[in-house]
Simulated assay, not measured.
Amino acid sequence: MPQSLGSAGKRLWTTTTLDEFELKAELQKVEILTHACRVTDKIAELKRSQRSEPLTVLGSARQLTIHPLIAEVRFQRGLLAQLLGKLGLPDTDEQIEAKREAVSAVRRDASKAAKFQVGQ
């Protein structure tokens, strides 16, 4: 396990490497998994930062726009899905639930932003 991983990345590394593949035999998958773990840590960091921020901010033309952290979390989740897809791992119940939660979170954020804008 890479030493620089945070708790979220370590959790992904541990759950993925327990049963899925032999690290020494599949070095390219180790590299992909390392990147996926770093992306997982970045998502956790962004979500922590997002807690204290509003859903919308003023854009360059003084219009309300979605906060950039929301868009970045969405982008990082997409990147994580691509990386995990390249590993060719079967989805566990935990991963299926995580995907559902990711989709729900994006929908919830979009709904809140839309309600906020409609109410103005």
Rank of each mutant, 00 (worst) to 15 (best):
residue 1 M to G: 07
residue 1 M to A: 01
residue 1 M to D: 03
residue 2 P to A: 02
residue 3 Q to C: 11
residue 4 S to Q: 10
residue 4 S to M: 09
residue 5 L to Q: 13
residue 6 G to R: 15
residue 6 G to N: 08
residue 6 G to I: 15
residue 6 G to C: 05
residue 7 S to A: 03
residue 7 S to H: 09
residue 8 A to R: 12
residue 8 A to E: 00
residue 9 G to H: 11
residue 9 G to P: 09
residue 11 R to Y: 03
residue 11 R to W: 12
residue 12 L to T: 12
residue 14 T to W: 04
residue 14 T to G: 05
residue 15 T to S: 06
residue 15 T to N: 10
residue 15 T to E: 10
residue 17 T to E: 01
residue 17 T to D: 08
residue 17 T to R: 07
residue 18 L to I: 15
residue 19 D to K: 15
residue 20 E to A: 11
residue 21 F to N: 01
residue 22 E to P: 02
residue 23 L to G: 01
residue 25 A to L: 10
residue 26 E to A: 11
residue 27 L to P: 09
residue 28 Q to W: 13
residue 28 Q to G: 10
residue 28 Q to S: 12
residue 28 Q to A: 12
residue 29 K to V: 07
residue 30 V to G: 01
residue 30 V to E: 04
residue 31 E to K: 15
residue 31 E to P: 05
residue 32 I to P: 06
residue 33 L to S: 00
residue 33 L to F: 01
residue 33 L to Y: 03
residue 34 T to N: 09
residue 34 T to K: 14
residue 35 H to L: 07
residue 37 C to A: 09
residue 39 V to C: 01
residue 40 T to G: 01
residue 42 K to G: 03
residue 42 K to P: 03
residue 42 K to T: 10
residue 43 I to E: 01
residue 44 A to P: 02
residue 44 A to D: 06
residue 44 A to R: 00
residue 45 E to Q: 15
residue 45 E to H: 10
residue 45 E to M: 02
residue 45 E to L: 06
residue 45 E to F: 07
residue 46 L to V: 04
residue 46 L to D: 06
residue 47 K to M: 06
residue 47 K to V: 12
residue 47 K to L: 05
residue 49 S to Y: 00
residue 51 R to K: 12
residue 52 S to R: 15
residue 54 P to V: 00
residue 55 L to K: 06
residue 56 T to W: 04
residue 56 T to G: 03
residue 62 R to L: 05
residue 64 L to Y: 07
residue 65 T to S: 05
residue 65 T to Y: 09
residue 67 H to V: 07
residue 67 H to M: 03
residue 69 L to N: 01
residue 69 L to R: 01
residue 70 I to G: 05
residue 70 I to F: 00
residue 70 I to N: 01
residue 71 A to C: 07
residue 73 V to C: 04
residue 73 V to F: 05
residue 75 F to M: 11
residue 75 F to T: 14
residue 75 F to I: 12
residue 76 Q to K: 06
residue 77 R to V: 05
residue 77 R to T: 13
residue 77 R to M: 02
residue 78 G to S: 00
residue 80 L to E: 04
residue 80 L to G: 07
residue 81 A to W: 07
residue 81 A to N: 10
residue 82 Q to P: 02
residue 84 L to C: 10
residue 85 G to A: 04
residue 85 G to K: 13
residue 86 K to M: 05
residue 88 G to M: 04
residue 89 L to H: 12
residue 89 L to Q: 09
residue 91 D to Y: 03
residue 93 D to Y: 11
residue 93 D to K: 14
residue 94 E to P: 05
residue 94 E to T: 15
residue 95 Q to W: 08
residue 97 E to G: 10
residue 98 A to R: 13
residue 98 A to T: 15
residue 99 K to W: 05
residue 100 R to V: 15
residue 101 E to L: 08
residue 103 V to K: 15
residue 104 S to I: 11
residue 105 A to Y: 08
residue 106 V to E: 06
residue 106 V to T: 15
residue 106 V to C: 00
residue 108 R to E: 00
residue 109 D to E: 09
residue 109 D to Y: 00
residue 110 A to H: 01
residue 110 A to Y: 04
residue 112 K to N: 09
residue 113 A to K: 01
residue 113 A to L: 02
residue 113 A to T: 07
residue 115 K to E: 02
residue 116 F to A: 08
residue 117 Q to Y: 08
residue 117 Q to H: 14
residue 117 Q to D: 09
residue 117 Q to V: 13
residue 119 G to S: 08
residue 120 Q to Y: 13
residue 120 Q to T: 15
